[in-house]
Design a protein around this nucleic acid. Structure first.
Length: 429
RNA sequence: UGCUUCGUAGCUCAGCGGUAGAGCGGCGCCCUGUUAAGGCGACGGCCGCAGGUUCGAUCCCUGCCGAAGCAGCCA
């Protein structure tokens, strides 16, 4: 009977068949310890010289790392193995003899590992991270699905910029220039006017020449958009969403987080209410901390770190100066200098994980804003239509999956949070 | 794109103006309970590339290529 490693505890005393790959091997004279991983977990398979034919014992001592195996043996409980269970091997078959494997159970540099990302994904640490990512995505989608949102995917090819013409990947679309999307938001606004509550989940692309631990050129965003919603509704949604997603990851991926040596208590503090501060309050805080920022300036990584370190959970910073925000942000009717927008900063210096706000719903104001930002009005014809036919207040936000995963896992760099990172100067594998 | 640091064995690194070393991996042998096992042995190198200085350069200088960290921009 073929069994996965994460289910062996249900088969103690039974003879089972495992299919997997050799993760590591240790020998001690008359014993070979084969660490076999099958994607679900890793188990120690013990080959004892008296339990198998001599030629098989000899073979076990010369198996190469990552060789594909089918192992037959009896499951037994044993405290000496880290899983708590091990397999007493009766026989095994080599399905493939692996060539010399480049990634050893010793230290490697990031460049080497990234060059071998297709193999690096097999290591236990990467498994933990990818499982957290998988759960984050599932939790995000589940959150919106259960609240009447419709998944409405945005296109990847777009005719124009959504937040400006720089930093876009241009492609040749049958003779005319097109761009890879840098946000699905404008399309989600169309969706919100059609379905009321929508979200998209997909890759986005930014050709920024950014070489930092928080940037990828290709990353995934989840972007909800809600009709008849204002900034306060938007902040309520972001808060509720974030608390639920974090809670689910902590509940379902505790073992993975522990294996990454994440301080889980810090994540358990992510409960409602999340603090909300205005941009101007943030300025005061920064001035106190000796990092003064002039009104009108956006925050950099340093400033975000100083702000987020004042709180033990994510903080919502709202009403930034309109001048430093995108053209579609609605201006605060109580203070024309400010935009009705919000950024959510993750604690522990992980920076902005959510950005969003209320959108401008007035046609004239929006047209003027497009002009003021120097954007080509003709590219936004369809978008302006949304303000001609039943325009209503609406709001939404985008959450970057990779920064979220980096924060949840406590990783220094986002490059490990996506299976195949795309960065400045890195396109392979 | 700017600043800083770095390119030496498959990997992680040490070294030095007189053409090289360790640990780990791989290979061979030894060991009934190993936990990144251990012990012994042999193998393994255009010292990133191209110029320059020098009797002589892996080492000093210049350029190029590549990488890492930080910053701007952003999620």
């Amino acid at each position: 009977m073929r069994v996965y490693v994460d289910e062996v505890h249900r088969h103690v005393g039974e003879e089972i068949t495992l299919k997997g790959w050799l993760y590591n091997r240790r020998s001690s004279g008359k014993l070979h310890f084969l660490l076999v991983r099958d994607g679900t977990a890793t188990i120690q398979c013990v080959v004892f010289v008296k339990d198998v034919p001599p030629e098989l014992f000899e073979r076990a001592g010369h198996l190469t790392q990552e060789s594909a195996l089918e192992v037959v043996g009896t499951v037994r409980e044993d405290a000496r193995s880290s899983l708590g269970f091990e397999l007493g091997v009766r026989e095994f078959r080599v399905l493939h003899d692996a060539a010399e494997y480049p990634i050893t159970p010793k230290e490697h540099g990031p460049a080497f590992l990234l060059d071998h990302r297709h193999l690096w994904l097999r290591s236990s640490r990467q498994h933990a991270i990818m499982r957290v990512r998988s759960t984050v995505v599932a939790a995000c989608r589940n959150y919106f699905d259960r609240r009447g949102f419709t998944l409405l995917d945005a296109p990847v090819f777009t005719p124009a910029a959504c937040e400006g013409t720089t930093n876009l990947f241009e492609v040749d679309y049958f003779g005319t220039p097109a761009y890879l999307t840098q946000s699905g938001q404008l399309y989600m606004e169309a969706g919100a006017m059609a379905f009321g509550k929508v979200y998209s989940f997909g890759p986005t692309f930014r050709a920024e020449k950014s070489k930092t631990r928080r940037h990828l050129t290709e990353f995934w965003m989840i972007e909800p958009e809600v009709a008849f919603a204002d900034l306060d509704d938007d902040m309520d949604l972001a808060e509720d969403f974030l608390v639920e997603v974090v809670g689910r990851v902590v509940a379902e991926r505790r073992r993975e987080l522990a294996s990454l040596e994440r301080d889980i208590a810090a994540l358990e503090r992510v409960q409602k209410p999340l603090p909300r501060i205005r941009y101007e309050e943030a300025l005061a805080t920064l001035a106190e901390a000796g990092k003064p920022v002039a009104f009108g300036e956006d925050f950099g990584g340093d400033e975000e770190t100083v702000l987020s370190e004042r709180f033990d959970r994510p903080v919502l910073v709202h009403r930034y100066p309109a001048a430093c925000k995108a053209f579609y942000m609605k201006v605060d009717p109580e203070d024309a200098r400010l935009a009705l927008c919000v950024d959510v900063l993750a604690p522990e210096g992980y920076g902005e994980i959510i950005g969003g706000g209320q959108r401008e719903d007035d046609l004239d104001t929006l047209e003027k804003s497009i002009q003021a930002h120097g954007l080509p009005a003709e590219a936004f014809g369809w978008y302006l239509d949304l303000r001609r036919y039943g325009s209503v207040p609406h709001a939404g936000f985008g959450m970057g999956i990779e920064r979220m995963v980096a924060w949840l896992c406590g990783l220094h760099h986002v490059r490990e949070t996506i299976p195949f990172p795309r960065m400045l100067e890195r396109l392979t594998p």
